[in-house]
Simulated scan of single mutants.
Amino acid sequence: MTLRQPYRLSTEDAPAVDAARVLLCVDHGGRDPDEPDAEAWRVRTSLPLLAGPRCEWWLSDSAVGDLGDDDVAFRANSAIGFGHLAIDETALAADTAGACRDAFERLIGVIRGAGYPHLLRCWIYLGHIHRGDGDGERYRQFCVGRARALDAIARDPRDYPAATVIGRPVDGASIHFMAARSPAQAIENPRQTSAFDYPRRYGPQPPSFVRSLRTDWGALLVSGTAAVVGADSLHPSDAGEQARETRSNIDALLHAAGNRWQNERAVIYLRRAEDLAAAERLGLSGAITVLQGDICRPELMIECEGVFRLA
């Protein structure tokens, strides 16, 4: 049985809504992320906006409660919650893996304590993602820290959340997330090796995420998807061909999920602003935002994530 969707997703700049019913507002661009917001429910990504809506509002039809703490903001209705937290650059520079493990442990502590134990979706915007060499690269050390926290609660890799990790041009890291009272079903991509099974050449710890999650309210939460077939990056540095391959991966994932799906929301990330035309080659409909950010592998130029719903 498909349940009623527990949120409403809007991409208006300023929808007419009662603040008591805002689960989260994701604001791309704007002021420095270290400048505090008056609203605990707003998070800024600090990724340059290239095209499309700037804001992403996750709204509730019923009043929400503030269930977070001093470090982790978390607002929820009776079924689902959204939250966010930050990692300071000083902590990242001193011990990337340790700082990321601590952040995810704090996040997990809040959602489990509030009664929303299922972490469904994470978005991570990591400053200076390629800083460091070899296994010391910041992204690889982030993967180590995230896994140490998630493996303490995941019985199986398919219990991991759907996720996106993108590099941003400012210090520190921002994490925002979706958690629910009930679990979702992991759907992997037949064209791709599961990220949690990547070979050692991509780092000491494979990334801890699933390709997508199918929820009990009929949504498919698609992780950041790029031109990776098997475990290999295809068409290095060619944004146009990577866009074509990325679309093939998304189509394969939608087919694997069964039923017919339509895009409700997509975010496309480009390493280079001059590759904006490549985003159009994805051929997606719905509300689409294009941002500039660094993909997790240096040879990847484009990545796309989405929220799909049953057609």
Score class of each variant (00 low, 15 high):
128 H>W: 02
154 A>M: 01
139 Y>D: 04
136 G>A: 13
123 W>E: 08
147 A>M: 09
147 A>Y: 07
146 R>Y: 06
130 H>K: 03
143 C>I: 00
121 R>L: 14
113 G>R: 05
114 A>V: 09
151 D>P: 06
129 I>D: 01
150 L>Q: 02
146 R>N: 08
146 R>E: 15
117 P>T: 09
127 G>M: 00
150 L>H: 03
128 H>P: 04
134 G>I: 04
117 P>H: 11
110 V>D: 11
140 R>T: 02
149 A>Y: 08
130 H>Y: 11
134 G>C: 05
113 G>T: 04
132 G>C: 03
121 R>F: 15
129 I>S: 05
125 Y>W: 10
117 P>Q: 09
135 D>Y: 09
140 R>F: 04
136 G>W: 07
147 A>H: 14
124 I>L: 12
144 V>H: 07
114 A>E: 07
143 C>R: 15
120 L>E: 08
138 R>W: 03
148 R>F: 00
121 R>Q: 15
129 I>T: 02
115 G>W: 11
116 Y>V: 01
145 G>Y: 01
114 A>I: 07
153 I>T: 10
127 G>V: 00
141 Q>L: 13
117 P>F: 07
113 G>W: 09
122 C>Y: 01
145 G>T: 05
152 A>N: 02
121 R>G: 00
135 D>V: 03
117 P>S: 11
149 A>S: 13
115 G>H: 11
117 P>V: 01
143 C>F: 01
110 V>G: 12
121 R>W: 15
142 F>L: 15
146 R>A: 15
143 C>L: 07
132 G>W: 03
117 P>E: 10
141 Q>N: 08
133 D>E: 15
129 I>C: 04
135 D>K: 04
136 G>P: 08
109 G>T: 06
109 G>V: 03
154 A>L: 01
136 G>E: 13
125 Y>E: 14
110 V>N: 12
137 E>D: 07
138 R>D: 04
128 H>Q: 11
129 I>A: 12
122 C>H: 04
109 G>F: 08
136 G>Y: 05
154 A>S: 13
118 H>S: 07
140 R>M: 05
145 G>E: 00
147 A>S: 15
